[in-house]
Design a protein around this nucleic acid. Sequence first.
DNA 1: GTTAGCACTCTCGGTCAATGAGTGCTAACT
DNA 2: AGTTAGCACTCATTGACCGAGAGTGCTAAC
Lengths: 346, 346
Amino acid sequence: MTRRELDPRKEKILQVVTDDYIESAEPVGSRTIARKHNLGLSPATIRNEMADLEESGYLKQPHTSAGRIPSHRGYRYYVNILMEQKQLTNDELAFIKGEFDPKNKPAGYESILQRTAKIVSEITKYPSLILTPRPQEARFRHIHLVAMDGNHVLGLVVMDTGFVENILLETPVAYTQDELNKISAFLNSKLHGVSLGEFGTGVLNQLQTEAQSWEGLGDTLQLLLATLDRKKQDRIYVDGTINILEQPEFKQVEKFKLLLSILEEEEKLLNLMNQALQKRGLNIYIGEEINDESVEDCSMVTATYEVDGKVLGAVGVLGPTRMDYAHVVTVVDFVAKSLSNFLKEK
Amino acid sequence: MTRRELDPRKEKILQVVTDDYIESAEPVGSRTIARKHNLGLSPATIRNEMADLEESGYLKQPHTSAGRIPSHRGYRYYVNILMEQKQLTNDELAFIKGEFDPKNKPAGYESILQRTAKIVSEITKYPSLILTPRPQEARFRHIHLVAMDGNHVLGLVVMDTGFVENILLETPVAYTQDELNKISAFLNSKLHGVSLGEFGTGVLNQLQTEAQSWEGLGDTLQLLLATLDRKKQDRIYVDGTINILEQPEFKQVEKFKLLLSILEEEEKLLNLMNQALQKRGLNIYIGEEINDESVEDCSMVTATYEVDGKVLGAVGVLGPTRMDYAHVVTVVDFVAKSLSNFLKEK
DNA sequence: GTTAGCACTCTCGGTCAATGAGTGCTAACT
DNA sequence: AGTTAGCACTCATTGACCGAGAGTGCTAAC
């Protein structure tokens, strides 16, 4: 539905209703519209138009004798066609740019994404979600084994996404650093460019047969892989959950509890955010377009971030269907782009 | 106040009131007590005793013509003297033991503590807090520098707490692995056993002068330290925030918002939990004994965990003053001990 | 096609009385 | 002297009721 299917006057009214409702959280009536925006129309006319809009499914009434609010269909039309682009304020712009200043470079993925989550939730005043780069698709760039005391070896794995993982291994034999260097070189030659996803038992078996010359290496490898496998999971950073309490629709504890239970369950969040990766760039999910039966009357705005044309993860905002789409879209889009740039520098 | 300052009958009544109130969240009246626990006393007698207890500050009334609830002083007496030891149920015991099974050994500090937080909040049904081992006091065990592509060096730092940190450095010069090995050896000889806290600019300056022979090393060192310094912060893992919504005293959104804002602010949590480290073992903070003006009507139960007699961090539960102390104390204590054991195995 | 007018609907806030839980006090009981 | 029955009193809670206000749909006039 990206076609203008409504005549201009109906569009104007739908837009006004949506804007007003987003701002006030109150159903908006014909009188209010006539008063606030002088469309040169009487309340009665507006009433007629609104009745039409309700019949064709763009508006709805919480109860007779209340004003109208947009239906999901109405929001969809609003978002696709009517919504006016918003600009970031100078403050917002400065804030985001400051946080993504290349001077802040070190400090690893984890803290960058956590910071990104904080930025988004602070500006939008909604809870934010950041999906980490998908480890499954990361490729080995470098493996290094370091001898520690006794039977301990520290495995260091660097992926092409810049992701660094260290794994403390207990080995059946005590290796010298020289041996480990050889093993490292061997592993590097075999694994360079292989993705964590491809790297199933097949590759492992092959490695093991080829590596029989090193005593006990098979077991060590197995351990390395088991640990790596556990880290293979995507992660989500959440921030600003508390913001949702500012929204009047969540004043009833029950509604809020439902949403919080989702925000605390990483698995559900992963489901939500993984949808976002399917289509690069910006996405808006309104109401039941979010594929989760336990999310009620919520919408989600997401944008993917990428490096060298490769989609890594996504930045998202979860809020009530009555969220300030124009603002959120602008923020999410800009932050995702800033994050992409920031990561490219590395 | 660990003396029995009340006569047995008053004690019994204080205990019954507290137990009942903890269970029901409703002020408890004389009639209820006479009915439920047959003390062989009439409501009138109980009323007299309760009036005495109120006068001496152990009980209070939310309003005239309501039942009594324990005051903070009453809770304190209850916790110190009256509370009956609870046993863990078999299910709880099995659950905890299963999670701390040494077979689950790998996977690093982070995930262990996160899991611990989950265990505690799931069993107690209150939000849980886990304070990480204090990086300030960790001592260097091992430093290793690995050459990556071009001007990048990966610094690997292992602390005696088992904490492993990796830091990607951009160096002004491209080092060969041989050079790096020498530098590593040099750093190891200098830093082994030094704690992160001691490691101020003093040590740094000394290192820099001694290390002038390596071109550009000074800057690199500085960078390494700056990054390490940023990691020096204690961390807190929180889980089960949502549980607090089950408590009737947080049904009003405002109360809940206050608590949530604390649980989302790491700095405040650190303040709270750092108190716990002062005294090893179990601690109970009731009401204003928690040193934070924004926490209202809450109590905290904490227990330290340790390895080789050295206190590393603490396990805690934050709940309403009306929390089930007996249960929480048992759980927190046992989990802290299990965690200590688990960490010792490493 | 637009609008004024009007009857109607529904929510919200406030008042009022009834209810019930619980208390404190006094006087009688053991 | 400690215990208890009885009674008057207090206070929060609940449900019924009412009026005000916002908004609608419909009809008839413009």
